[in-house]
Amino acid sequence: MEFRQLITFKSIIEHGGFKEAADQLDYAQSTITTHIKNLEEELEHELFNRLGNHVTLTNYGEKLLPYVKQLLQIYYQIEDLDDEPKGRLTIGISESLMICRIPEILEMYKKITLKSKFL
């Protein structure tokens, strides 16, 4: 069982179908189908009732869904363990402090970050 299969499973449910999940995840629809087929083979249960273009969860799929949500929540939390600050930093400061103080602070920051990369 692979996380990408679980992500695919959840995406199909959230977006209402295989094609919609493929569009959302930027996969070919055949890739989505393969993920689910492999997951169903491994679990030895069908996860979806397929009625033309409409899909619904089987009883087993309904039972599986809360566990998939828990696993993916933990998976995403692990991905976010990085202690490094992320995102954009905006500093509002007067021009005089900008000229006098910021270059020194940025130089110290640069030394610290370079040092930590080589530890």
Rank of each mutant, 00 (worst) to 15 (best):
R101W: 00
I74H: 08
S11W: 00
K10W: 00
A22T: 01
K63Q: 14
D23T: 09
F48Q: 09
Y67N: 07
I12W: 04
I36Y: 01
G52H: 13
L106G: 08
L6M: 15
G52E: 08
E104H: 08
H54Y: 06
P85A: 03
Q29R: 15
L81E: 12
G17W: 05
D23I: 04
L97M: 11
I105A: 11
L71E: 13
K63H: 05
T8F: 04
I78R: 14
G16F: 02
A28E: 10
I91F: 13
E40V: 13
C100F: 14
K86F: 02
N38D: 06
R4Y: 00
A21G: 06
C100G: 02
P66R: 03
I105K: 13
F3W: 03
I74C: 05
L43W: 10
G52R: 14
S11I: 04
D82K: 03
T58Q: 03
K69R: 15
E20N: 11
L6D: 04
N49Q: 03
E40A: 04
D23N: 14
G17A: 09
E46F: 09
R88T: 13
E84T: 12
D82R: 01
T58H: 07
Q73L: 07
L39Q: 09
N38Y: 07
Q24F: 13
T8M: 04
E41W: 01
V55I: 14
I93M: 04
G92V: 15
Y109A: 11
R101T: 10
I32Y: 04
E107S: 12
I32R: 00
Y75T: 02
Q5R: 06
L71Y: 06
L51I: 12
S30D: 06
F18K: 12
I13R: 07
Y75A: 09
D80I: 04
R50A: 01
I93F: 04
L97G: 05
L6G: 08
K37F: 12
D82G: 08
L6E: 07
F9V: 00
R50Y: 01
E107D: 11
R4Q: 11
L47E: 08
L51N: 14
R50N: 13
T33V: 12
D26N: 15
E107N: 15
S96I: 06
G87P: 00
D82Y: 05
L57M: 15
F9C: 02
T90I: 15
P85E: 02
L64G: 02
L65V: 00
S96C: 00
S30F: 02
I13L: 13
L47S: 08
T8K: 01
G61F: 05
R88E: 12
N59F: 10
Q70F: 05
P66E: 11
P103E: 01
L71S: 09
R4N: 07
M108D: 11
M1A: 11
K10C: 01
L97S: 14
A28M: 10
H45C: 05
P103H: 07
R50Q: 05
E104Q: 05
S94Y: 13
L81Y: 03
Y67M: 08
I105F: 12
M108N: 12
Y75Q: 01
L57K: 13
I102N: 10
L71A: 06
E104A: 08
L97V: 04
N59E: 09
G87E: 02
M98P: 02
Y76Q: 10
L51W: 04
D26Q: 14
I74S: 04
N53E: 06
